[in-house]
Design a protein around this nucleic acid. Structure first.
Lengths: 241, 241
DNA sequence: CGCCAGATTGAGGACGCTCAATTCTGGTGG
DNA sequence: CCACCAGAATTGAGCGTCCTCAATCTGGCG
C-alpha cells in the first residue's frame, strides 16, 4: 500500500526529469492540498461529458481511461499506476471526453484545478513540466496506436506487459513478479483483443517460456525474449533513471 | 494554396478557444519569426531519434506522424492539416519518438523552440494554450485508438473521413467535396487496415450512397448517414465555432 | 508512346471473434 | 468448517473479417 507522500514524490521526480526544478517548485508540488478518496473495482472516477474540477494523482491501484463503441465494446486508451497524474490534461480541458475507471480498486489524491493552475501561473518551469507530462501521455497513446493497429496478438500482449513492467519497476515494484491488477478481459480492452483470445495468447506466452503464472499475477521468465517478441523500446515512456 | 499568415491565424484562433488571449498574446504569436520550407510527397520532415529544434506549422498539405513495426507495417498516429502545429510537443520533448512525413507534398513554417519557449515564459496564458493544444492532440489519439481497436472497417474509414471533413471545414474548405490528399494505402495506415481492404471498403461506402468519387478526391453524399455509420461525434476535436 | 504509381479486382487463407460450456478461485454466510 | 456463489479463467467448435499475393487497369507525365 502506497502513501500520498510517496505518490507525490514519484510525480515530482518525473516532472523534474528534463527541466530541473528549483527546491521551491518542488515544495509547491509536494505541498499541494488535496483529498484522498478510495474506489471500488470498476467504479467510475469521472463520467463522460462531466466537467472535471480536480486532477487525480494515483496513490494505489490502477486507473484506466477508455472509450466505448456503440456496440458496447470498450477500448482502454490509457493506464495509470501509482505516481501518475491520471487527469492532468483536464486542468486545461475540463470537459471529460473519455471516462476514467479503477480496474481493481484504487485510491486517488484529488487536487483542485485552481491549485494546479495557480502553481502553473507562478512557475513557468512547472507550467512547462505539466505540459511535458501531457506530451508524454500523448506519446504513449501513439505507441498504443501502433500496438493495437499493427501487431499480432502475441506482440500486443507482450508489449503491454513490457510497458507495465517498466513502469512498475520505475516506482519500485519488482519486475520479475508483479501483479498487473487487471483481468484478462481488461487486458483485451487495452490491446484491441477479446478476453478469450487474451487467455489463449497468454497460454502461448507461457508455453514459449516467456512468462509464468504466479501467486499474485504473472512472472516474467525471459525478459530479453519477451522484449524481442514485443518489439519493445522504453524510449517512449520517458522514465527516470 | 494557403499562406503563412492564414495558417498562423487559424492556429491563434484555436489557441484562444478556451482561454481568451490578450491582443498582446495574439501579436506575439502572429509575429513569431520562422522559415518557410516545402516538402515533396513522402519526404521526411523529422527522423526517428533526431533532436528537434523547431516546431512546424502546417501551411499547406497534409503531414502524418507514424510508427513502424519491425515488419515494416506503418501506423499513422496523427494527421495534421493547414493551421495545425504538427510538432508542438517537441518544444518540451525534443527527442523525436515518431517521425513526420508529408503525405502528398506540403509546405511548413518552422519556428525555433527557443522562440516558442520564450513566448511561453512571458505569457502564462500562452503557456496554458500550448499545453492545451497538446492535450487536444492526446484526445484525438485516444479517439483513434478506439477507432483502430474496436470498430469495423467501414466504421473506421467513415470515422476518419468525418474527422477530416470537420477539420477541413473548420479552415474554410468545403465539406461536400474535399481532397483528402492521401493514397488509399495511407488511409489504411491511418485506420489499421490494408490498402486493398480500404479500396473494397470505399467501394462499399460508394455503393451504399454515403460517398462518391469526385475529380479531386471524394465527395460526401449523405453526411448524416456517414456520421451514423462512423459513430462520429465532433466533441473530441475541440474545433472553434 | 512507354512508364510508373496508384487504384481495382480475384482467389484463397489465417487470425482472431462469437457463442457456449466448464473449471477454477476467493470470498461469504450458514 | 463447509457449502455456496459470483466473477474470472479456461477450453472447444465454427465462423467471418480482413489479410496475402497476384494480376490487371487507369491516369498522369516525361
Amino acid at each position: 500500500m502506497n502513501s500520498v507522500g510517496q505518490a507525490l514524490e514519484f510525480w515530482v521526480k518525473r516532472l523534474a526529469l528534463r527541466g530541473p526544478l528549483t527546491a521551491c517548485d518542488r515544495d509547491m508540488i509536494l505541498d499541494l492540498p488535496g483529498v484522498t478518496k478510495t474506489y471500488r473495482p470498476s467504479q467510475d472516477i469521472v463520467q463522460l461529458g462531466a466537467r472535471a474540477t480536480q486532477v487525480s494523482l494515483v496513490v494505489d491501484g490502477v486507473i484506466a481511461r477508455f472509450g466505448q463503441a456503440r456496440s458496447g465494446a470498450r477500448q482502454l486508451t490509457a493506464l495509470y499506476i501509482p505516481g501518475d497524474m491520471c487527469d492532468l490534461h483536464s486542468a486545461v480541458l475540463p470537459v471529460v471526453s473519455a471516462p476514467l475507471q479503477s480496474t481493481q480498486g484504487a485510491t486517488l489524491y484529488r487536487i483542485s484545478h485552481d491549485d494546479i493552475r495557480d502553481v502553473a501561473n507562478r512557475s513557468p518551469a512547472l507550467a512547462r513540466a505539466f505540459w511535458r507530462d501531457c506530451a508524454v501521455d500523448g506519446q504513449i497513446a501513439s505507441e498504443w496506436l501502433l500496438n493495437v493497429g499493427r501487431r499480432s496478438a502475441i506482440a500486443k500482449l507482450s508489449h503491454l506487459i513490457c510497458e507495465l513492467a517498466c513502469r512498475f519497476t520505475a516506482i519500485g515494484q519488482p519486475l520479475a513478479n508483479f501483479s498487473i491488477g487487471m483481468t484478462q478481459n481488461q487486458l483485451g480492452e487495452a490491446t484491441g483483443l477479446t478476453g478469450v483470445h487474451v487467455n489463449r495468447t497468454l497460454r502461448l506466452l507461457r508455453e514459449q517460456g516467456l512468462i509464468a503464472a504466479s501467486a499474485n499475477g504473472l512472472k516474467i521468465v525471459d525478459w530479453p525474449r519477451l522484449v524481442a517478441v514485443a518489439e519493445f523500446d522504453t524510449a517512449y515512456l520517458h522514465l527516470p533513471n
